[in-house]
């Protein structure tokens, strides 16, 4: 039987990103889920963690100034 003893908010929040990554053992995953089922504040933290991850994932603008691109292209040609 898995130990699904309740965990405090501090513990749930500490594990939220790893929970979203599935990087914690299934029993810990279950404990976080159980905590989220009754804690509104931690659900807010969870939503914000999701937003933060999306913010990071979509902030990867691939911009390269034309003069840098030109120099790097010349570098590749000279290899």
């Amino acid at each position: 039987m898995t130990d699904t003893k309740a965990i405090p908010c501090s513990e749930a929040v500490r594990q939220l990103w790893d929970y979203l990554d599935h990087a914690i053992p299934p029993e810990d995953q279950e404990k976080v889920e159980k905590h989220l089922s009754f804690c509104r504040s931690c659900c807010g933290e969870l939503e914000f963690a999701k937003e933060m991850r999306a913010f990071l994932a979509t902030s990867t603008a691939q911009e390269i100034p034309p003069h840098v691109k030109e120099r790097l292209e010349r570098f590749v040609e000279r290899l």
Binding site: T60, Q62, E63, I64, K69, L72, V76
Partner: peptide, 18 residues
């Protein structure tokens, strides 16, 4: 070859630089 390399990496320059 050198030409193959050039062809392949030029498209990746923006991602690498970022």
């Amino acid at each position: 070859t050198k030409e193959g390399f050039q062809e392949l990496v030029l498209a990746e320059l923006p991602a690498l630089y970022s």
